[in-house]
Design a protein around this nucleic acid. Structure first.
Lengths: 358, 358
DNA sequence: CTGTTAGCGCATTCAC
DNA sequence: GTGAATGCGCTAACAG
């Protein structure tokens, strides 16, 4: 320690100091202040408590963690905390963590497996009780090396007793491991259901504005939508790949607006998520095209903040906050994943104004 | 420790194990794996690194923190992480933390000082290097006790060498303390500027839809707006207090829509923040009133996700992400707050469609 | 340049 | 019921 100790001028008081002031042993002080065993002699207990109070004693969680080998930390990995999809999930995670008397450590990754691996390593180093991964997996070839490292990191983490909860798809290359569980999100099924309903009402061509090829969540939704179309006897939709964000949607919307009009009637556009759908609508509107008048647009997620957007967005509702809660509680649970399997996440197709035909 | 140790079946390998495998002392192993001094003998270093690799060694950050008395943790306190205002700030905090090679611990409080006190205590226990408080203060009488406790908690934290950064108003009852700095947000000035511009263009009566009385941020904006009105020679606006949220705005909007119309022309409504403004517009729209046709509405914050909302919202732009970055970096900084003072946060009045007069 | 020693603050065996 | 050791995993002084 430096002779100056500028960053820690007056170290917080310790259990030992409290004990001394109270005239008891550190062990006793520990028992009355934190111990689970019944509080020692009533008089003693009070003395200790008063000593702690007067010294402004704050237990050092780091030291406790070291001694107990349990940190009370939950690591959350998201692509971008400012994205409403992730912040909604984060709220659920936070809520579950609070309920289980733990704190959440936050890491953002820009969506790359390399970033996720880094975050996972940091959480492992901090000995988080559990790690929750909310972001979509990437199956891109260029990410396969990083995916491997991520899987290795997480496998080691689990082998050392760590708990892991993942939203949606499992970690690529990570085998079934003790303490590892996935919370399935029926993206494909729901997209299929959406396609079915849309196909029944729309005659025009379908277009899918998807995220980057290899982004698992996006791919699942695309696949499901195409399947729904096929089952309705429709041709496969054209797929445009762009960023899985509002701006990605905007770019795609601009591109679509610039096309020679009306080859086959009013198009029905399915966006990989709500914020992309918003971007599409904004782009079309800017080019003078109305929704749903000249194009129908549907999204996915049913982001709460978009409720007041007009036209109201047809989408698939996902209980994001609950997803966050469930994946966290599941990871922390000692039960053999029966809970998750029994009652998976369910979503709801919600047709609204943006895809109306009249 | 229980005889089973279910939660930690195979404790992660330790530095000592790595050292033994490499045939060196723990100190040497520490130096090559983490130490800042130049790496020891090239051959030795490689041996250690290989040993670490083969054992899957992951340094225990808790133990490091204990030994170094620095945790690399930054505690962030917000009202609600799913609120776009806070999630935008959180992104900035996260970005700054990453830059400074630290992790962020997240706590949400529902906006009560009691909750903030609890979160602050948890952060203090974890020996976070810095605490960042993003939520608005409450000056309500009923919160004064909790405010006092919060101030006491934070003062002790700072006295023990902790750093504290607060967005907007200072902590009530917390005296100037080493390591404590506030990032001023000119809510009042900006609201005044907004009022000035609005007063120049609107003849109708002004109404302010504010958050709960005693919510500092809301109060500042109301005060500034009223001042701007007064300076323009206008009568004070009527003030409605409601929840500082979309639903609060919706309720107020419903109430306003139900009034006997046109006493003094088209009203101009100033909402305490953007999400309230959205709620107001939604309520008015539901009642068949158009914006800006039958009422002008302005917000505050310029939330990014509302960009595509129509009518485009007049508001005051605040660089939320930068606010998060700045308050974090400031708290971590050793400089005497010159940085903050020199270049405070600046906002921008942005008049858009929702308050157009024609 | 490397090994040895001594804590960091706490929980927890064991004796008393 | 209480106190005295011991160790959690690591870093930082000190010596060699």
């Amino acid at each position: 320690m430096s002779p100056h100790m500028e960053r820690n001028p007056v170290a917080a008081s310790t259990l030992a100091e409290v004990a001394k002031l109270a005239g008891v042993s550190p062990a006793t002080a520990s028992r009355v202040l934190n111990g689970s065993a019944r509080t020692p002699g009533a008089g003693i207990a009070e003395r200790v408590r008063q000593a702690a109070e007067s010294l402004g004693y704050v237990a050092n969680a780091q030291a406790q963690a070291l001694a107990k080998s349990s940190t009370g930390l939950i690591g959350l990995i998201v692509h971008d905390i400012a994205d409403p999809y992730f912040s909604a999930i984060a709220r659920g995670v936070q809520s579950a963590a609070r309920q289980e008397r733990r704190m959440v450590l936050l890491a953002t990754t820009d969506g790359t497996p390399a970033g996720e691996k880094e975050a996972a390593a940091a959480f492992a180093a901090r000995r988080a009780d559990a790690i929750v991964i909310a972001g979509s997996r990437s199956t891109r070839a260029e990410d396969s090396a990083a995916n491997g490292e991520l899987a290795a990191e997480l496998e080691r983490y689990c082998r050392n007793g760590g708990r892991l909860g993942v939203v949606g798809q499992g970690i690529i290359g990570l085998p079934e491991t003790e303490g590892y569980r996935t919370l399935p999100v029926p993206n494909e099924e729901l997209a299929r259901g959406l396609a079915a309903e849309l196909a029944a009402a729309h005659t025009g061509p379908f277009v899918i504005v998807a995220g980057p090829d290899g982004l698992a969540t996006s791919d699942e939704r695309v696949r499901g939508f195409q399947r729904g179309l096929a089952e309705a006897g429709r041709e496969p939709a054209e797929v445009l790949h762009t960023a899985f964000s509002r701006n990605g949607g905007f770019d795609a919307g601009t591109q679509l607006a610039g096309r020679p009009g009306d080859r086959g009637g009013r198009p029905c556009i399915f966006a990989g998520n709500d914020v992309m759908a918003i971007g599409i609508v904004a782009a079309l509107r800017e080019r003078g095209l109305s929704v749903p008048g000249e194009a129908a647009v549907a999204g996915f997620d049913d982001i709460e903040w978009l409720r007041d957007f007009r036209p109201e967005l047809s989408t698939v509702g996902l209980p994001l906050e609950e997803i966050g809660r469930r994946v966290t509680l599941g990871a922390l649970s000692d039960l053999p994943a029966e809970d998750d399997a029994a009652s998976g996440i369910t979503g709801t197709v919600r047709l609204r104004r943006s895809t109306e035909t009249a």
